[in-house]
Computed example of a mutant assay.
Amino acid sequence: MKSQLAFFKDLSLKNKIAVNEPKMRIPTSPFQVMVNKEIADHIRSWRFVVLIVLITLTFIASMYVSLSNIGAAINNTNDPDHVFLYLKLLTTTDNTIPPFHVFLSFLGPLLGIALGFDAINSEQNSGTLTRILAQPVYRDNLLLAKFVGGLVVVSTLFITLVLLMMGGGLLLTGVRIEPQELVRILAFGAITILYVGFWLSLAILMSVRFRQAATSALTAIGVWIFFTVFYQMVVNLIVRAFLPDPNLLNQAEIISYNDIILNILRIAPNQLYTDATTTLLMPSVRSLGPITMEQMAGAVPAPLPFKESLMIVWPQLSGLLAATVACFALCYYLFMRREIRS
């Protein structure tokens, strides 16, 4: 009996010790720690708060204008897309303000640039870059954590906006969303994240290339302004200087002339994003370039399936992805060869 009592006492004592002991934590990789730190820094910064407020106000204004004009858009039987209520919420406007996807082509680059223009040079100027790399971490982990942390924040933002749009449309209209609309809206969110990711990688590249944060920010903004405002004018001037007058060409030559201009314009990331989002949010779009009357003969004005729309914009998606990878690869090359102790 005494031995049994001693056994139970020892067992209860061990249980108490086990309860009072702190639980063993699973070791966290240095990369995950740096990503969590970058996400926290972005969320706590004032510039991120200002951009979030700006994009949210733009979203609310666009949704208000769309809901005010959604009745006329749905009742317009001449429009093949009038049956897609939730897609109309993103594309309908009364010409007072642009639709939401057009706004994002302007505000998305600012978000990406703001999250990455001082990613590396601020660490080096404050002296923390040498301390971080003195720890048992790899250089590429630091650079990748800067990019992944910003991309996670951007992804969370736009996924939240998409869910708010669908939830608000459901509450205000009472119409359930169709599966094709859901897939197209999710694809629109993914393309927007990819588009902002390109500008984020470009901003990090400028941060690696230039020592001062102001120089990297102004260079990235200058690239954005060039592609947004001046690139189309420069292309038109150059093409008109080397190609004949369009008024003297026949129909086939005019189509070839316009194809050349469009292909040159698609070097700009904002043009790729506009083409991709317009095709996905407007299922009746069948071509992104000029077509002849013979090609239009027999065509039924009906919405395309999602797979067909995706095939149309696949070159645009590949171009955005390739540009993002190229910027990050060049950034990786420069950062790995950079002297950080000076």
Results as ranks from 00 to 15, higher is better:
36 N>L: 10
244 P>R: 12
329 A>M: 13
250 N>T: 05
294 E>R: 09
153 V>D: 13
204 I>P: 03
240 R>D: 14
65 V>G: 08
253 E>S: 12
193 I>L: 08
71 G>L: 08
152 V>F: 14
254 I>S: 04
20 N>T: 10
31 F>Q: 03
40 A>G: 07
154 V>R: 00
276 A>C: 08
1 M>Q: 08
330 L>S: 09
65 V>E: 12
339 E>P: 01
327 C>G: 07
105 S>I: 15
47 R>G: 05
326 A>T: 06
316 Q>D: 12
321 L>A: 12
72 A>I: 07
308 E>R: 13
192 T>F: 06
247 N>W: 10
152 V>L: 15
278 T>Q: 14
25 R>N: 09
307 K>Y: 12
92 T>G: 05
223 V>I: 14
224 W>V: 15
97 I>G: 03
40 A>E: 04
288 L>H: 04
17 I>H: 05
187 A>E: 00
243 L>K: 03
211 R>K: 13
175 V>Y: 04
62 S>F: 09
112 G>S: 02
249 L>V: 14
218 L>I: 15
256 S>Q: 14
23 K>W: 12
174 G>N: 03
297 A>G: 09
157 L>R: 00
287 S>G: 03
262 L>F: 12
202 L>C: 10
101 H>D: 04
88 K>L: 12
81 D>V: 03
44 R>N: 07
321 L>D: 03
53 V>T: 07
202 L>R: 01
143 L>S: 06
64 Y>W: 07
12 S>P: 00
334 L>N: 04
275 D>R: 01
62 S>Y: 05
167 G>L: 12
339 E>L: 08
284 S>H: 15
277 T>I: 15
223 V>W: 14
297 A>V: 07
3 S>G: 01
253 E>W: 10
225 I>H: 11
283 P>I: 04
152 V>S: 07
49 V>Q: 13
156 T>R: 04
116 G>L: 11
34 M>K: 05
312 I>Q: 00
183 V>F: 02
227 F>L: 13
290 P>D: 05
56 T>L: 15
214 A>K: 09
